[in-house]
C-alpha cells in the first residue's frame, strides 16, 4: 500500500516534504495491512476446517473424531435412505479415486433430498466424524453440474 501513498503524495516541487509524507503513508499502510492480517488470522482460527477425501478421513479416523471436517466423495446411489417425513437422510460416500474401498456413512438431518443426488453425484459435507464411524453433517452440498459434459 505504501507505493500508492508515494505516488499520490510525493510532490515534484517539494522533495523533502514528499519524503516525510512517504514515511507517514508507509507506516499507515503497514498498520492497515497488519490490522487486516490480524483480523483475517483471528477469524480464520475459528472458521477453519480440514478438507479431506474419504480415503484421508478413513486413514486419519482416530485423529479426526469430533473435529470440524469438510469431506467430498461420490455418493453410492443404492445406499441412500431418506425419510421425507422427518427429513432424515443417510447415504454412503466413497473416495473418488478408489471407489471400491470402504465407504463412510453420512447422516444429515433437516435438509431436503437434493435433486442432484443420483448416480455418481459428488457430495461435499461439513460436520464431524462420530466415534461410531458415521459422519454427522450440518451442511450438505451437491456438486452442481455447471457444464454439459459428464466428468
Amino acid at each position: 500500500m505504501s507505493e500508492i501513498a508515494d505516488w499520490t503524495t510525493s510532490a515534484v516541487e517539494e522533495p523533502r516534504r514528499g519524503r516525510r509524507n512517504w514515511v507517514k503513508f508507509a507506516v499507515a499502510g503497514a498498520l492497515i495491512l497488519a490490522a487486516l492480517a490480524l483480523f483475517l488470522y483471528s477469524t480464520i482460527r475459528s472458521n477453519a476446517q480440514y478438507f479431506l477425501t474419504v480415503q484421508e478421513l478413513r486413514d486419519r479416523a482416530t485423529e479426526m473424531v469430533g473435529k470440524d471436517v469438510r469431506v467430498s466423495g461420490v455418493v453410492v446411489p443404492e445406499s441412500i435412505f431418506y425419510d421425507a417425513a422427518t427429513l432424515h437422510l443417510e447415504f454412503d460416500i466413497v473416495d473418488r479415486d478408489s471407489p471400491s474401498a470402504d465407504p463412510v456413512r453420512v447422516v444429515v438431518d433437516g435438509q431436503p433430498l437434493p435433486d442432484q443426488m443420483n448416480d455418481e453425484a459428488e457430495a461435499i459435507v461439513e460436520g464431524q466424524l462420530q466415534p461410531d464411524g458415521t459422519f454427522r453433517a450440518g451442511t450438505l452440498m451437491m456438486k452442481c453440474a455447471s457444464k454439459y459434459e459428464a466428468e
Partner: peptide, 24 residues
Amino acid sequence: LFPLITELVAGEKITLRVGWYNQV
C-alpha cells in the same frame, strides 16, 4: 485460495466455512 495455501505451506488442506466470509 486457502486450501491451496495451507496445502503448500503446511501440507494439509484446510478450508474456511461460508460463515467466515460473512464475518470478514
